Simulated assay, not measured.
Amino acid sequence: MLALLGALALTAVRAEAQTAAPAWPQRQVTVIVPFTAGGTTDLFARIFTQAMQQKYGTAFVVENRAGAGGTVGATAAARAPKDGYTLFVGTASTHAIAPYVYKSLNYDADRDFQPVSLFATLPNMLVVSNQIPARTMSEFVAYAKANPGKLNYGSSGIGASNHIPAEIISNLIGTPMTHIPFRSSNEIMNALVGGHIHLAFDNITFALPQSQGGTVRAIAVTSKERSPTAPEIPAIAETFPGFDIGTWHGLFAPAGAPRAVVDQVAADVKEIFSRPDVVAKLKEIGAVAAPNTPDAFTAFSRSERERYRVIVREARIEPQ
């Protein structure tokens, strides 16, 4: 009887605690995306928010805050309330590259964020205007060397994951190229198709369909190995051994967000990005679903910052 009473009392305490601390979410959750709508980062965010809204019956709203290679949105997320009702889709640009290409950031990529989970990884793809005669990496290198200072390339801004590969290649072949920043991959592709820029190292998500449609020409992917989605396209590493400049997208919360919420959302990300239809959809666009735990994502983010610290230094990119 005493044991039964004790168990009942414990149950009552637990019920009271649950009543005192309602389950998350109780109201709208805002997911900040640091790039424009319709881009790769936005795509991952909407896969996540749509699934979460269906599960919880609560609004999950994407808020696009583009600018400065993603750092405008990252700054807004870092300053948001730490209550679990603001989340952020970070990338290699915002959390691994930006600390080394900007003289001053209004956020600390490590201190101001709590990693939740990776979404996916994917390579960039070197694509050129059809005005450029090169069809292979070797032909591109030869053409660039024969036209020093005449080529320009588009990116999403200084420090973006589609900016760094161009600077590295420029240094490797010893030929300067002019950087022209845009706000989004859509703008980059429109400029490339229109012949306003000569090349781009953009996400395979946008570059591959354009190359398949013949409006631009795919030369190589920036990952260490060929992409399973487009195995016919060589990797730059086949010409420059060791070259490996892919990108990734993942979910963060402002540092200090309740750990219970962080763990709950991480479990949701794992479930969503393990669904066969989601995995298949990502594979179609050249991405690999890669959900993990908050601790694993924290370790991954830190290792990526260290990797890009070396890459940026060796590429001789001066902080802006």
Score class of each variant (00 low, 15 high):
A191H: 06
E232H: 14
I158L: 14
M177P: 08
P133F: 01
R79I: 00
H95R: 10
A144E: 02
N162E: 05
S129L: 05
I311H: 04
S185R: 00
R316C: 00
A59W: 00
I47T: 13
W248G: 01
G256S: 09
F119H: 10
A98T: 10
T178R: 15
T75C: 01
N64Y: 01
D268A: 13
A134V: 11
S185A: 12
R307Q: 05
Q54E: 14
I168S: 07
T41M: 03
A59Y: 04
G39L: 03
T19I: 04
P319M: 06
L172S: 06
F140S: 01
A160R: 07
R302D: 04
P99G: 05
Q54C: 00
P319H: 04
G39N: 12
P319L: 03
Q54T: 14
A166R: 03
G213W: 09
T30N: 11
R313S: 13
A230Q: 07
D110K: 12
V288E: 13
T136V: 05
L118I: 02
T30S: 12
A160N: 13
M1F: 11
Q18F: 01
K283L: 08
M189R: 10
P123Y: 02
T75R: 10
F300P: 02
E271L: 10
G149I: 00
E271R: 14
T293E: 02
V265F: 05
N171A: 08
V279H: 03
A15Y: 00
I188L: 06
V13N: 02
L151S: 06
P148M: 03
E63Q: 15
A59E: 13
P165Y: 06
R111M: 01
Q53P: 02
N64T: 07
K270R: 15
L282W: 05
V33W: 02
L251Y: 09
G84R: 06
A166D: 08
L8M: 14
I47W: 14
